[in-house]
Amino acid sequence: MALNKSDVEKIAHLARLEINEADIPLYANNLTNILSFVEQMSAVDTTGVEPMAHPLAASQRLRPDTITETNQRELFQSIAPQVEAGLYLVPKVIE
């Protein structure tokens, strides 16, 4: 499975990553190598094997629906790139 320039651009877009034009051939090459390396997996017949998502066969723990956390908006927003009136600012989304 060899990835070309447009594959890399598509994956980078899905991952919301800006990749410099000049670096695309190197990424295409690296990613192709990694994918051909993991390709070894397909040689094994895994029919009927239950996928293992997690090392411990545990189900998610439930907790009572009570408030345990306090509001720390100011503390958390003190490290944000741009805030105003308690809101996170981003470039305008709707004209």
Binding site: M41, P51, M52
Partner: peptide, 15 residues
């Protein structure tokens, strides 16, 4: 399926 599910199945075999 070809990558993620396959890898999880192999994870079971390795385990």
């Amino acid at each position: 399926d070809a990558y993620y599910i396959k890898a999880q199945q192999l994870r079971r075999l390795i385990s």
